[in-house]
C-alpha cells in the first residue's frame, strides 16, 4: 500500500482535497491564499521532491502572471486609483482582485498536482465506485485499455509506415489522413478483439447479480484519528469563514486587510488542515529516525 501519505485511506485523502478545494474558493484574504499555496507547495515537495510541480511550472507561472497583469487593465472598478491607462482607471482593487483570483487558481492547480500523485487511478476510482459503481467500472476498463492501445498503435504504425503511410513526412492533409487511417485500423482491430474481453467477463459471472466490490483499503485507527483531526479544523475554519474571518472586501471599495485575533485562530486551523500530508510524512520520518 505504500508508506506515508500513500498509506492513508483514500476517503481521508479525498476529504482532505475537498476541504482544500473549498478553502481555495471560499477564503479570499491574500495571506490565507498565499499560505495555502505555500503549504500545498510543501505538500508536493514531500511527495516527489517537486518533480511533478516542475512539469506544471510553466502553466502555473504563465496563468498567474497573465491574470495578475491583465486584470487591472480590463477592469476598472474600485476607488483607489493608481493611474490612468488609455483613459481607463487602473485601481488597487482590480489589482488585488487579480492577485486573489490567481492565487486561488494556483492553489487549485497545486491541489490537483498533489491529487494526481496521491489519489492515482485505482484510488480515485475506488471512491467513485462506492457512488457510481458501473461508471467507475467502465472508466477502469477504459484506463486498462489505454496501454494496450498504445502498444497496438506502435505495431500498426510500423506496418503502415512500410506500406507508405506516414505522419512524419508530407503535407498536413496527407499526414492527417495517414494518422486517421492508422486510428481506423486500431478501431476496427480493437473492437473486434474486445468481444473476447466481454466474453471473459461473462464467463466469470459479470452481470449475473449484485456485485460485491472488493475493498482493498481498510480504515485503520490512524485513519480515523486523522479524519477527526481534519474534520475538527475544517469545521472551525468554515465557521470562522462564515463569520467573515479570512475574507476581505474588495469591491466596490477595498476593506481592511488587518488580522484580528480570531483571524489568527481561523488561519491556524486552516494551516492545520492544509499541512496534513506534511504532518503525516513528518511523523513517519520521526518514527524512522527515533525507533529501534
Amino acid at each position: 500500500m505504500g508508506n506515508g501519505i500513500h498509506s492513508i485511506h483514500p476517503f481521508v485523502m479525498f476529504f482532505y482535497y475537498l476541504s482544500i478545494g473549498f478553502f481555495a474558493m471560499f477564503f479570499n484574504h491574500p495571506a490565507f491564499l498565499l499560505a495555502g499555496c505555500l503549504a500545498l507547495a510543501a505538500v508536493n515537495l514531500t511527495h516527489d521532491r517537486g518533480t511533478a510541480m516542475k512539469q506544471w511550472m510553466p502553466v502555473m507561472v504563465s496563468m498567474t502572471l497573465l491574470i495578475i497583469l491583465v486584470n487591472p487593465f480590463i477592469n476598472s472598478r474600485g476607488t483607489h486609483i493608481f493611474f490612468y491607462f488609455r483613459g481607463k482607471q487602473v485601481t488597487l482593487e482590480a489589482t488585488l482582485y487579480g492577485v486573489v483570483t490567481s492565487m486561488s487558481l494556483l492553489m487549485v492547480l497545486l491541489l490537483f498536482i498533489s491529487l494526481n500523485i496521491v489519489l492515482n487511478g485505482n484510488k480515485i476510482l475506488y471512491i467513485f465506485s462506492r457512488i457510481l459503481p458501473k461508471t467507475a467500472f467502465l472508466i477502469m476498463l477504459s484506463i486498462r485499455f489505454v496501454p494496450l492501445l498504445k502498444r497496438r498503435l506502435t505495431e500498426i504504425q510500423d506496418v503502415q509506415r512500410v506500406k507508405g503511410m506516414t505522419i512524419k513526412q508530407g503535407t498536413i492533409r496527407n499526414r492527417a489522413k495517414s494518422g486517421m487511417s492508422i486510428l481506423q485500423i486500431l478501431l476496427a482491430w480493437s473492437l473486434e478483439e474486445a468481444i473476447e474481453t466481454a466474453d471473459s467477463m461473462k464467463a466469470r459471472g459479470y452481470g449475473t447479480g449484485k456485485r460485491s466490490p472488493y475493498i482493498p483499503y481498510r480504515i485503520t485507527k490512524t485513519d480515523q484519528n486523522w479524519l477527526i483531526y481534519l474534520a475538527i479544523f475544517f469545521i472551525i475554519s468554515v465557521a470562522g469563514g462564515f463569520l467573515g474571518y479570512g475574507k476581505i472586501i474588495i469591491y466596490p471599495k477595498l476593506g481592511t486587510l488587518h488580522f484580528y485575533p480570531l483571524d489568527w485562530v481561523v488561519f491556524t486551523s486552516c494551516l492545520a488542515v492544509m499541512l496534513f500530508p506534511v504532518l503525516v510524512e513528518g511523523r513517519e520520518q520521526l518514527k524512522w529516525n527515533y525507533s529501534a
Partner: peptide, 20 residues
C-alpha cells in the same frame, strides 16, 4: 457486458487518438 466493453473501448480510443 458487451456494451460496457464497447463503450470503454471507444472512450479509450478517443483518449489515445491524439498519439498518432
Amino acid at each position: 457486458g458487451r456494451e460496457i466493453v464497447l463503450l470503454a473501448m471507444l472512450a479509450a480510443i478517443a483518449a489515445v487518438g491524439r498519439v498518432p
